[in-house]
Simulated assay, not measured.
Amino acid sequence: MTTVGPDTQGGIPQQPSLNVIAQYTKDLSFENPKAPDSLRPRDKSPAISVGVNVGSKQRSGIEYEVDLKIEVKAELDDEVVFQIELLYGGLFRVQNVPQQHLHPFVMIECPRLLFPFARQIIADASVRGGFPPLLIDPIDFVGLYQQYISRMQQQVQ
């Protein structure tokens, strides 16, 4: 006899599913504090630093809002050439993921889906600011999540 429950359909376990309901720019800032001097040709390239942060909150039983924050700063000789800050969000429907795997699933897979779009917005912002397109390297969201878990464990101790 086969039992049909919330995790099965006709005795077949339901596969985890992730659907993008919406994605959007929540906040975008481009600063070029030394313009137009910052646009002149230079002998060397600026040092680029990139910071990434992921946040999430449950909106309903199966819907999660995930924010991907990317901060970019280009500096040359201790002066900011340009700075970009982007807060890019998405609304996701997550189903059939076991509770113990839900948090890492949301914090890794959702920003992984958002990243290519956020990367393009950063590249477009740098071009529209008068600079070459800034193409951010792919981000290891698993490593980022592991760092987050380590910080949380240290705070508990």
Rank of each mutant, 00 (worst) to 15 (best):
residue 4 V to R: 10
residue 6 P to E: 00
residue 7 D to P: 14
residue 10 G to L: 12
residue 10 G to H: 10
residue 12 I to S: 12
residue 19 N to T: 01
residue 21 I to T: 03
residue 21 I to N: 09
residue 24 Y to T: 03
residue 27 D to N: 08
residue 28 L to M: 01
residue 29 S to E: 09
residue 30 F to A: 05
residue 34 K to A: 12
residue 34 K to P: 14
residue 35 A to M: 10
residue 36 P to S: 15
residue 41 P to T: 07
residue 41 P to D: 02
residue 42 R to A: 12
residue 42 R to Q: 08
residue 43 D to C: 05
residue 46 P to F: 04
residue 46 P to V: 02
residue 48 I to S: 10
residue 49 S to W: 05
residue 50 V to F: 02
residue 51 G to Y: 07
residue 55 G to V: 01
residue 58 Q to G: 03
residue 58 Q to E: 03
residue 59 R to T: 13
residue 60 S to T: 04
residue 61 G to L: 04
residue 61 G to V: 02
residue 61 G to D: 10
residue 65 E to F: 01
residue 65 E to G: 11
residue 76 L to V: 15
residue 77 D to W: 08
residue 77 D to E: 15
residue 79 E to G: 14
residue 80 V to C: 10
residue 81 V to C: 10
residue 81 V to D: 00
residue 86 L to C: 04
residue 87 L to S: 08
residue 87 L to A: 05
residue 88 Y to M: 04
residue 88 Y to C: 06
residue 88 Y to K: 07
residue 89 G to C: 05
residue 90 G to A: 07
residue 90 G to V: 01
residue 91 L to T: 02
residue 91 L to V: 05
residue 91 L to F: 04
residue 92 F to W: 07
residue 92 F to C: 08
residue 96 N to Q: 09
residue 99 Q to S: 11
residue 101 H to L: 09
residue 102 L to R: 09
residue 102 L to A: 10
residue 104 P to R: 03
residue 108 I to W: 05
residue 109 E to I: 14
residue 111 P to Q: 13
residue 114 L to Q: 02
residue 115 F to P: 13
residue 116 P to W: 06
residue 117 F to Q: 06
residue 119 R to K: 10
residue 120 Q to G: 11
residue 121 I to F: 04
residue 123 A to W: 01
residue 124 D to V: 04
residue 124 D to M: 09
residue 124 D to L: 10
residue 126 S to T: 00
residue 127 V to H: 03
residue 128 R to C: 01
residue 130 G to N: 07
residue 142 V to S: 04
residue 143 G to W: 03
residue 149 I to G: 11
residue 151 R to W: 09
residue 152 M to K: 07
residue 153 Q to D: 00
residue 154 Q to Y: 10
residue 155 Q to H: 14
residue 155 Q to K: 15
residue 156 V to T: 14
residue 156 V to S: 14
residue 156 V to E: 15
residue 157 Q to V: 02
